[in-house]
Nucleic acid binder design. Structure first.
Length: 498
RNA sequence: GGUUCCGUGGCCGAGUGGCUAGGCAGAGCUCUGCAAAAGCUCCUACAGCGGUUCGAAUCUGCUCGGAACCUCCA
């Protein structure tokens, strides 16, 4: 089996993955800011890295997966009143900040469960790690890379850049950062405009506030990830993931802070997922083009033609390589919906195939070889920087083979028993365990199955008597209810929920 | 303005020198009481103009168009 290669944003190339501690892997992914509802764009990293997590587990790594919850405030645009996002919203909604945070955290977890993502090993909150963050800031001051002004603390980027490569991750030219003239107020505290806040003094009306050696305030944005990653994954860990839009300044600053405190580069492999776009534009609050997950699942949004099942969204995302942009449209989502249905039915047909009659050797050598190749490539494609799009393409090439065997278009003896069994095993592994797909219509309870069985029997009797009025009525009424009845080639009947 | 990236058939998307990716939509056929599903077949594209090469969607130059980051952002 080939070696796992990961595209490292730091080196801008694919690199063979070797974990620091053999058999173990540490992965940190930037989590949500729970000051509002998650939207479709947010779904991408969590689904992407869920697959990474699942795949590393499959490769028998013991993975510690840390994904934070940002529940402490970040200053808004500097220059304006330095106020906490969460605090300001809380005033508007007349809620306790932590009540608001709890609400959106719950909503986030709810969506993550619907997406069938595996919860991270540790999901630390920023507010729960104020002490660690203060500790790290103190270290930075002691090391001479941070300075305090009026109760706020800033990181000295210029000094860091003199000794280290600030801008390497994001391809930033350091001189330009210093030169760029941007007219922002309230920068006079900073020695240089490229400096970033580690700790901000809190104005009296600021609700979220903590005591610190520099007075009452709240932590800067970048420090939380550095502090929590260090605490749970160590000075240096394997993978750090997040959206491309976090590369600068967030991840760049994270590297700087951690490098000074821990005397080593914090991350071996930086992974960044690309954006979801809508009409070619990034989906984001500032663009006013977001579709919240609750809207997506309910169809309750002007541009949505219908509701989309979370699994359809997951499939939609996995049909694209994570480093490419993904353009949203109703048409694209509906294509994904149909594609997933087709894949899933093929998958179920495969698992239902009775193996007893298969032969030790298949009669169709060519088909057998092709099938084996398609199956073997699952691993290869995943090892090539998690190319789920190609894995799915191969699955779709196998679906006609499966359906043909089921419908006896291809003789049952065409493939050997071992090939069929391998196909069943690998499809299950990839569809369910690695890609994390689930049946969209899982509502087929035992009672419904019983009722359907009854209707099928009645319809069979009607058909035997050539009473097509009754048989058509049963089928048409079920269709109207959203249940599709199919006459199989062998005279049996099957059904699916649309 | 700076940095980086992208431009693939009606739509979504793989794809880094030579082989039909795949999904959806559309057309035809087979199966079928009819239908749906399924199977088979077709639609064979790489923004434009040059260059390198036996050979380029893939490398290179220019042009046009779009995007991301530089400010909170997945």
């Amino acid at each position: 089996m080939s070696q796992l290669k990961i595209y490292n944003s730091l080196s801008r190339q694919k690199e063979a993955f070797h974990s620091i501690t053999p058999g173990h892997a540490g992965m940190y992914v930037c989590g949500p800011t729970v000051s509002g509802e998650s939207h479709l764009g947010h779904a991408r990293p969590y689904i992407t890295f869920d697959v990474v997590y699942r795949y590393l587990n499959h490769l028998r790594y013991k993975v510690r997966y840390v994904r934070n919850i940002t529940d402490a405030g970040h200053f808004e645009e500097e220059g304006r009143e330095a106020e906490d996002k969460i605090a300001s919203k809380a005033v508007l909604e007349k809620l306790e900040p932590m009540e608001l945070v709890q609400k959106y955290t719950n909503l986030f977890h709810w969506a993550m469960e619907l997406f069938n993502t595996i919860p991270p090993s540790i999901e630390p909150t920023a507010t729960g790690h104020i002490i660690e963050q203060i500790g790290m800031i103190e270290q930075l001051i002691d090391a001479g890379y941070a300075y305090e002004v009026n109760g706020s603390v800033y990181f000295d980027v210029k000094k860091y850049a003199a000794n280290y490569d600030y801008g390497k991750l994001s391809g930033r030219v350091i001189e330009e950062l210093f030169e760029t003239t941007r007219d922002l107020d309230g920068q006079e505290e900073k020695r240089d405009r490229a400096d970033f806040a580690l700790w901000k003094a809190a104005a009296p009306e600021h609700i979220m506030r903590w005591k610190s050696p520099w007075g009452v305030g709240y932590p800067g944005w970048h420090i939380e990830c550095s502090a929590m990653a260090t605490k749970y994954l160590g000075a240096q860990f394997d993978i750090h993931g997040g959206g491309m839009d976090l590369q600068f300044p967030h991840h760049e600053s994270e590297i700087a802070q951690s490098t000074i405190c821990n005397h080593t580069a914090p991350v071996r492999y930086w992974m960044h997922n690309n954006m979801i776009t809508i009409n070619g534009k990034k989906m984001g609050k500032s663009y006013n083009n977001v579709i919240k997950l609750t809207e997506l699942f309910s169809g309750n949004h002007p541009i949505l033609e219908k509701a989309y099942h979370p699994m359809v969204v997951r499939f939609f995302i996995l049909q694209t390589q994570y480093r490419s942009t993904l353009d949203f449209s109703n048409e694209a989502l509906q294509a994904a919906e149909k594609g997933l249905k087709r894949l899933w039915e093929g998958y179920e047909n495969l698992q239902k195939l009775a193996v007893d009659s298969w032969q030790l050797t298949g009669t169709d050598k060519e088909l057998e070889a092709r099938s084996l190749k398609l199956i073997a490539e699952f691993d290869e494609f995943m090892n090539d920087d998690f190319n789920t799009a190609k894995v799915l393409a191969n699955m779709f090439e196998l679906v006609p083979v499966i359906n043909s065997i089921k419908d006896k278009i291809i003789p049952a003896t065409a493939l050997s028993r071992s090939t069929i069994e391998l196909l069943q095993k690998q499809m299950k592994l990839y569809v369910e365990d690695i890609l994390g797909l689930k049946n969209v219509t899982e509502a087929d309870g035992e009672k419904l199955k019983g009722v359907m069985q009854l209707l099928i029997e009645i319809r069979k009797e009607a058909k035997t008597k050539k009473d097509f009025v009754i048989s058509d009525k049963i089928r048409n009424q079920l269709t109207a209810l959203g249940i599709q009845l199919k006459d199989e080639k062998d005279g049996s009947m099957s059904w699916t929920i649309n």
